[in-house]
Write a protein that binds this DNA or RNA. Structure first.
Lengths: 147, 147
DNA sequence: GCGTATTAGTTGAAAATGTAACTAACAACA
DNA sequence: TGTTGTTAGTTACATTTTCAACTAATACGC
């Protein structure tokens, strides 16, 4: 009778992923929270706007895989902070094009620079080769196209 | 003027980790939620009890890196479902030793078997070699000792 | 022993999230 | 045009999480 089919939590991929995600986000999350009073979804919306230029809430939902209510609230919060603004689209008045304001751009610039550095420091913890492989694997699991 | 220091969200490790963690937990979370009405923290508490045997809430907090209020509520919920029970410790009456009930053991057995299979299917998505390397890297980021 | 500090765990209120129902605008088509 | 269906986005409400204050028990210094 083989009693050694013990399955440890640290072998369970979802658990590991969550722990690692928690640990890895901590530092950065703290920064944008304390500095700009932003929530994670807000940071993501900002990031996406910076990356893809003006886009609608729906497009962000799809790209970032975040539910529309979360996006809706994040957009409202960012608007209140005057980091973004919106413009109803002429051809389809259900859609609103979101865009960064001047101060939004400044904030994003700061956050991106820090994100980059933060990422860099995480990668160094793992080593170039490992880090690259890690990202590739994560992209697969996340269902993103591999680069 | 080099304008191509664009930093993409999919290059940002915390973002990737979160996306992957989300995607990877989804299927399993759905199962224990629908089947046993359990929340993630409850499943983790159960898992830890199965793994380490009787232990106190504090010990679970430390091991799993979960805040004590979350654990406290998870423990209360599991107790209500009669999956675990507690026993105040003789030598220090602030501490309560948690242990699985009979039905708790059954539930855990089911969940562990499924977790194992679920894990297996995720690993297959990546291939043996990749999966192994992924887990190693995650353990490092999570601050767990590598195995 | 007595006062103060810590520690395990709980609780209540506030913040955030998830879910489902809603509004407004468009589309399709008789 | 009018009916029906779909889509973008918001809102309301229930559940979950977070944060801070709390209780009860122990530990420490004297």
């Amino acid at each position: 009778m083989t009693k050694d089919d013990t399955f440890y939590s640290t072998e369970f991929l979802p658990y590991l992923l969550n722990q690692a995600a928690e640990a890895a986000s901590l530092g950065f999350r703290q920064y944008y929270k304390e500095r700009y009073g932003m929530l994670r979804t807000e940071w993501r919306v900002l990031f996406h706007l910076g990356q893809f230029g003006e886009m609608t809430a729906k497009e962000i939902c799809d790209r970032a895989n975040i539910h529309k209510t979360k996006i809706s609230r994040a957009v409202a919060a960012l608007e209140k902070k005057r980091f973004i603004a919106r413009r109803t689209m002429e051809n389809d008045r259900r859609l609103e094009e979101l865009f960064l304001t001047k101060s939004g751009k400044q904030v994003l610039e700061d956050l991106q620079r820090r994100a980059k550095a933060f990422d860099q420091s995480l990668m160094e913890q793992l080593g170039e080769e490992n880090a690259r492989s890690l990202k590739r694997n994560l992209a697969i699991l996340a269902g993103l196209k591999a680069d």
